[in-house]
């Protein structure tokens, strides 16, 4: 009943594609899945694939909570996999029985977000940090202080429009625990971001390539592989390696509860996890692959893609308690009030 009612609310218009056979509706990070691989999958199986995109984990969570999302496959990050599973929003697909599971690097198996490997198969992992345009800024990028307590960069910084990664990064810089429920600790985070605000031109998660590539801003909160792709397209950008650490993320395929095309979703997961296809996906997406790939055909190596091989600590984002999450929200709302 709740689902039915929610589907009619004005705020969240939801797409309701027909649950026909031979369909697969994917909801993934913008430009995160190789279009060639999708075409190849459709050709091999005759399954029609529709892809919609999101630009924050929060968007994906909200869409699933609204019910009847119509999606068969979603790719949230690890902490949101945990929240979605705890909230009963995911279909138990016995992921550990899939061939894809055997392809996984051991360090991604049986982790805290999906201890029994019931729900998820990872697709990509990487870090969130910040990137600078080297035509606009030639200073050091070895600490978060460059971004959070800017001198040279003041007036030329953009952050993301959601608190998730930004607050985590500020916590790394200040040495505050992720998901702390201690108000005094979070006040420090707030004070840092508030003091930084006059130096920030925008809080936005869209169109980052252009904004940073064109030099409209000299520094942007961003992701490793996206920076790599922009650099390879000719832009003079560099991904910072702050000594305090980077915010780690791992995106996984999950199937929303009640999805119409579960078998197709599993088939796609298997398809994406074969060595050949995973290599092609790695070369397209330019984020690290959690499954086995063919090193001889991989485009990115430690030499030509330092973004993907950080030599600083990587601390993965956690699923916060509601109380801790409220503090994160309070920091953000007070910041933008």
């Amino acid at each position: 009943m709740k689902k039915l009612l929610l589907a009619t609310t004005l705020i969240l218009p939801v797409a309701l594609p027909a649950a026909a056979e031979g369909e697969l509706n994917i909801y993934a990070w913008a430009d995160s899945i190789s279009p060639e691989l999708i075409a190849k999958f459709s050709e091999e199986t005759g399954i029609e694939v529709n892809v919609d995109s999101f630009s924050s984990n929060e968007d994906a969570l909200t869409k699933l909570q609204a019910g009847s999302s119509g999606y068969d496959l979603v790719t949230p990050s690890q902490h949101f996999v945990k929240i979605m599973a705890d909230e009963g929003l995911l279909e138990d697909i016995d992921a550990y029985e899939l061939d894809a599971y055997d392809q996984l690097d051991e360090r991604w198996q049986g982790q805290w977000w999906d201890p029994e490997n019931d729900y998820s198969i990872p697709l990509a992992y990487g870090t969130a940090g910040f990137s600078v345009n080297r035509d606009k800024y030639d200073g050091p990028v070895d600490s978060w202080s460059v971004l959070f307590e800017p001198t040279d960069l003041a007036g030329s910084i953009a952050l993301l429009s959601y608190p998730d990664e930004v607050v985590s990064a500020a916590q790394l810089y200040l040495g505050v625990e992720y998901c702390t429920e201690d108000k005094a600790e979070m006040k420090k985070v707030y004070d840092l971001l508030m003091a930084q605000k006059p130096a920030v031109v925008a809080y936005t998660s869209d169109n980052i390539e252009n904004r940073l590539g064109s030099g409209e801003v000299a520094a942007h909160f961003w992701w490793d592989g996206n920076t790599l792709r922009l650099r390879n397209s000719g832009a003079h950008v560099e991904y910072a390696m702050p000594k305090e650490g980077l915010v780690g993320w791992l995106d996984s395929f999950v199937v929303p509860a009640g999805a119409a095309n579960i078998d197709n979703a599993k088939a796609f997961i298997e398809f994406m996890s074969t060595v050949e296809n995973a290599t092609e996906q790695y070369n397209y997406y330019a984020h690290s692959a959690p499954v086995e790939i063919d090193e001889s055909k991989a485009l990115y190596t430690k030499e030509n893609a330092p973004e993907l091989f950080p030599d600083v600590p990587v601390v993965f984002a956690q699923a916060c308690s509601p109380a801790a999450q409220d503090l994160v929200t309070k920091v953000w709302t007070d910041l933008l009030q």
């Binding site: 968007d59 429009s161 959601y162 920030v200 925008a202 809080y203 929200t329 953000w332």
Partner: peptide, 18 residues
């Protein structure tokens, strides 16, 4: 630039991030 919330963006953040 999303630097100051308006009612529309405030509602959006409450359903999303918050």
């Amino acid at each position: 630039g999303g630097k100051q919330l308006m009612m529309g963006t405030l509602i959006q953040t409450q359903f999303g991030g918050a």
